[in-house]
């Protein structure tokens, strides 16, 4: 994980606390951007880099957890590290269930925070790689003709060329041509590759 191309956001209403976390993260080479409130954070333009969020709200209770939910709803998949003055067990459980990486009680050990941030950025990076991959696959899939898409669907379903030819009332030779086009356009080196791509695309479409 290269910190140069990542960003850590801090939301804390206490300026001194904000400055101290910022300094700690910068001392190990992270880029940091801090905000005094969640509203300020939402108003800000967010650069397209791997990122994670350190969230400290006084008396977090609902407000902290609600903000977490709001983030998930708005499609901003940002890993969150909660830092709080007096979090109780139910609160931390709720936060972790909603996908927080860590729930740290103040004062915390610096290594705990750095580890959590590191894990958050890795998650963000993985997620971004995944998203980029999916975008590429979709782009490739878009280049297929409708006949090629039909052939691809039947190929990944395990039908033999002969059967596909019969299904689509085409000659076996034509099917072979379409098939090799599909393999080329989708960038698949083998049948298992193609099946995996199709799976991912299917997952992405059912998800959305």
């Amino acid at each position: 994980m290269n910190p140069d191309h990542s960003l850590v956001f801090i939301i804390d209403d206490d300026p001194s606390m904000r400055a101290s976390i910022e300094s700690l993260l910068r001392s190990v080479g992270h880029s940091v951007k801090s905000f005094a409130s969640t509203q300020d954070f939402m108003r800000d333009e967010q650069p397209d880099v791997p990122a994670c969020l350190i969230l400290d709200i006084r008396f977090p209770g609902q407000s902290g957890l609600e903000f977490q939910r709001e983030l998930v709803k708005s499609g901003l998949h940002l890993p969150i590290v909660f830092v709080t003055g007096h979090g109780d067990v139910p609160m931390s459980v709720a936060a972790m269930k909603a996908g927080a990486i860590e729930f740290l009680n103040k004062p915390f050990r610096d290594q705990d925070l750095l580890d959590a941030v590191h894990r958050g950025l890795e998650m963000s990076q993985d997620r971004r790689a995944e998203e980029a991959m999916l975008a590429e696959l979709s782009r490739r899939f878009e280049t297929l003709s409708s006949r090629e898409r039909e052939v691809m669907a039947l190929v990944v379903a395990g039908r033999l060329n002969k059967q596909i030819a019969a299904d689509l009332s085409l000659s076996e030779v034509t099917v072979k041509v379409h098939r090799s086009q599909v393999m080329r356009k989708m960038g698949a080196n083998s049948l298992p590759d193609l099946v995996r791509f199709a799976d991912r695309l299917a997952c992405a479409t059912t998800k959305s």
């Binding site: 700690l24 003055g85 915390f108």
Partner: peptide, 14 residues
């Protein structure tokens, strides 16, 4: 606790 946490984190950063 608030200033205390800040002191600890600042010291760590320093």
């Amino acid at each position: 606790n608030q200033p205390l946490a800040s002191i600890v984190t600042n010291a760590d950063a320093g």
